[in-house]
Amino acid sequence: MSTSLDSPPELMPPEDEPQLEGHSTFGDRFFRFLATSAGVAIMVALALVFLFLGLEGFPGFDVDPSNYDGKGSFGSLVLALLFGTTYAAIIALIIAVPFAIGVALFISHYAPRWLSKPTAYVIDLLAAVPSVVFGLWGGLAFGPYIQPAHVWLHEHLSWLPFFSPTPSATGRTMLTAGFVLAIMILPIITSLCREIFAQTPRLHEEAALALGATRWETVRYAVFPYARSGMVSAVMLGLGRALGETMAVSMVLSSAPIITLGIIGSENSRTIAAHIAQNYKETTPDKVAVLIACGLVLFAFTFAVNALARYIVQRGERSHA
């Protein structure tokens, strides 16, 4: 450092003033300010949201038991809601993940080129449909449409706790909600998986092909091992979206804050987001505080899920390196 500062001026290109004071760096500094403030702002916003939820929701942990929708305490209410939230999201994942991976593989490895681009485009379009539209469609069209499937499942598989309740006559059930959620999280999982699959090193795919692997074997040998951690993060992002999804679930599901494994009956578990959406017009401050406290729990829960996802992804990357 010191040598370059001490070096005699003759060594500088003669036509240049020594550019040490940098008066031409206004743009540089401006953009640094812009980028830094954007970065700081998002952190501050997140902290403020957390602070708001904490301050406003804290009283909700312990109010008059009549505010807990028939549950005796905040704990049992939020436990039931958390169960419903996770349950709906897991059903959605079970439906969406194989489908999304299949579609992503079709786009990246199976479809002819003229077909893969349009397919990818259509899947991405699904992400642009507002969730209220999915809710409307799910509750009014899709639910009644798959109601016979509920009956069938009950008739043939009622020994499983999921299908033991009497089938709902409207189809507004956890199963329907799971399907609608699955369609909503399909695009994000598909497009992330497709990107990762397409980045599989050609070298690894050729290694498998040259050994006489079929297309599926090539996928198993070269594509999946390479994409594993990316697939986990895609699924986790989908899970995050499913956990927080509000409108579609609250419009599709006729629910109560109960814990039930049944997914085809008229009594369904409720999710936190749907609970808030359905009750936020309640006026008493105590009830509002309870809702905000539920929101705080949802916030903490999705945060934990995302943190877990990042941990898994990082661990996967390390073992790859």
Binding site: P201, L203, H204, E206, A207, A208, L209, A210, L211, G212, A213, T214, Y221, A222, P225, Y226, R228, H320
Partner: peptide, 29 residues
């Protein structure tokens, strides 16, 4: 696929399967 099982190939850059052990790499085919 049947042809490639009769005609093996070695590439310009070594490409063992990254997630497999030495043992599993040899047995991959």
């Amino acid at each position: 696929v049947a042809v490639r099982r009769q005609v093996g190939m070695v590439f310009q850059r070594a490409n063992p399967f990254p997630t497999m052990s030495i043992y599993e790499n040899v047995l991959a085919g």
